[in-house]
Design a protein around this nucleic acid. Sequence first.
RNA 1: GGCCCCAUCGUCUAGUGGCCUAGGACGCUGCCCUCUCACGGCGGAAACUGGAGUUCGAAUCUCCAUGGGGUCACCA
Length: 471
Amino acid sequence: MDSAPKTPVRTRFAPSPTGPFSVGNARTALFAWLYARRNGGTFLLRIEDTDMERSKPEYEEQIRDSLAWLGLNWDETPLRQSERRAVYEKYIKKLLEEKKAYFCFCSEEELEADRTAQLSQGLAPKYGGRCRSLTDEESARRAALEPHVIRFRMPQGSISFTDLIRGEVTFEADIIGDFIIAKDERTPLYNFAVVIDDEESAVTHVVRGEDHLSNTPRQIALQKALGFGTPVYAHLPLLLDAERQKLSKRRAQTSLLAYRHEGYLADAMFNFLLLLGWHPEGDEIVGRDEALKRFDLSRVQKAGAVWSDEKLSWMNAHYIRAMETSALLTELASFVPKAWQEKKELLAKAVGIEKERMKTLADFASRAGFFFELPDYPPDMLFWDEKPDESKENIRALHAALEETLTFTPEFLTATLEARAKETGKGAAYWPFRVALSGEQSSPGGIEIALALGREETLRRLEIAIEKVEA
RNA sequence: GGCCCCAUCGUCUAGUGGCCUAGGACGCUGCCCUCUCACGGCGGAAACUGGAGUUCGAAUCUCCAUGGGGUCACCA
């Protein structure tokens, strides 16, 4: 592979449990996982729950469920940042002692005022440095009395790194300013916790969304200040909505598990997500094994990718069609009414027939009802085209023919229908038969349905049709 | 607004100086198959953002412009 790393790969996926697990998260996880697995490396999961107010246990559970559903297994015990306050404290104190960080007493109102002032002057908003050069004594004295946060003393110069996807990227440290790394000695903020955890977990490759690109120089500056190494970065293009904005919960459905509940297959989602930013050389249908063999970050697109429900839907239908009926039956379990489950044989046949027609697993329940219970339908639905008389006649004739024999095979049914078709035209033979069995304007073929229903039920439905046309 | 990233059909993309009359997939669409639906088969419309370079030759390299996006929190 062309971008094979030299050292054993250790990468991680680090979501925060502050909301439903999104498809964007899933795509990031997928690419990181593929990169790790593809290179025989380690894939770690880390829960970034430093924001105690917004983090919820149910969202953490959703992260695990989502990854498990997609088959993205992780190694080692996941780190949970909320449990690592003592670790962060150690490093925060170290930076404080080394004067690489300092207490800041500015109020939020003051900062907000600074920010608007800078913005109105056309400047990049950044911390002005009011507390930067407080003496130790003053700092200590005020710390005992006033609320304060901890800022990192951003060194001068420029910060460059080589991104696996974008190449060399450079930021000027000067425009970043002294950012806040912790609310207090034990409460780190995102950029700080990330640096500590990546170091302690010996992460070699960070694969994450492009929205983190501008955090990278901050993190690198912290790494340098702490004497840590810098991992290799790969910033994935963002997933966009139809308006080309970052996919967000407010504008579109983004919950991964919502797709699952709508009846999307994990394999289809996997394949679809894979195609958002990466492309195989040949066929777009790429399963897990194939992806593991061929995935390469160097082939990842740089520009954002717009989400397409249409293509996902097509992909899902494709995977459903390709699936063995028995396997599909298993997937369908939670989508099928109890009553249908009990008619095992009929259910299996119905699934086999509807397989070609469903786009989602949920479609089955809304499509296949007629197999289990004939819906009521208007009598004239039975009439083909302008041939009501022939249609009536054919229903009776078909009923009579089927009643006369116990032979109930595809060949027999075809022969019987064809015989009528010769007399009255194909439509007048097949259409009424199919409608009598399905009660629907459109449905699978009559013979297919008849074979699924069996002789007895077929006759019964034909009798209902006869009653209807005679009424 | 500053900084950073990006730019091929509506969408996902192939394409790394000649193989491009720009290929595939989804979607759209015409025809075929056909009792309806679906599947399938064969076609079609549909793109290199613009300009200036470099070069014998640019979708491919450079620069500028334009456009889009991300980010500028005591969120992550």
